[in-house]
């Protein structure tokens, strides 16, 4: 049944706002899922960054020994560059660790929200997303426990 201008019957969103909200909530669920993973990575980086400083020092020593000191001939500023790199890594590490609980709580909140929104979708099942979000939640909680205990 085409109208007089012979246009097709288009998607006619009846009960529009409810359906729009449903669609939008699914989009928000995906956004929260992505954000929970991002903030989990920030938490893990905060924990690992403490190790990175040590790794860089060890790297510098190993390179110096392996090249029998000739690295200072090839690159006179090798050690000063390494130390400035260690300083930068230290600053990043300090920033990540000082805000660790904020990142962790955001990761927990977003993963819980994405689980809830995915579970409430009646049209499609989001098993994979719920499982991964649950893992993110568990890992974040374990990270918090480790940080508090450590």
């Amino acid at each position: 049944m085409k109208d007089i201008e012979n246009k097709p019957v288009e998607f006619n969103p009846q009960n529009t706002f409810k359906r729009e909200l449903g669609c939008f909530s699914l989009r928000l669920g995906k956004i929260f899922f992505n954000l929970s993973i991002f903030f989990l990575v920030l938490c893990i980086c905060g924990i690992l960054s403490l190790i990175s400083t040590v790794i860089m020092i060890v790297f510098g020593i190993v390179v110096t020994l392996a090249t029998l000191g000739t690295v200072f001939v090839i690159m006179p500023n090798f050690w000063s560059n390494l130390i400035s790199g260690i300083n930068i890594a230290g600053n990043v590490s300090e920033f990540l660790m000082s805000n660790f609980y904020i990142f962790a709580s955001i990761a927990v909140a977003f993963s819980i929200l994405s689980i809830i929104i995915s579970a409430l979708d009646k049209q499609n099942k989001h098993k994979g997303k719920i499982v991964i979000a649950s893992i993110v939640l568990a890992v974040t909680i374990v990270s918090i426990i480790i940080t508090i205990a450590g």
């Binding site: 288009e10 998607f11 969103p13 529009t16 706002f17 359906r19 729009e20 669609c23 939008f24 989009r27 928000l28 995906k30 956004i31 992505n34 954000l35 991002f38």
Partner: peptide, 27 residues
């Protein structure tokens, strides 16, 4: 159903753009 055919598509697009940190984490 097309998301961009809804009445309030522009509002939800703005909200999701902001929430997803300027669209970086937006599907």
């Amino acid at each position: 159903e097309l998301e961009l055919k809804y009445k309030f598509w522009w509002l939800f697009a703005v909200i999701s753009f902001i929430v997803s940190i300027f669209g970086i984490f937006e599907p």
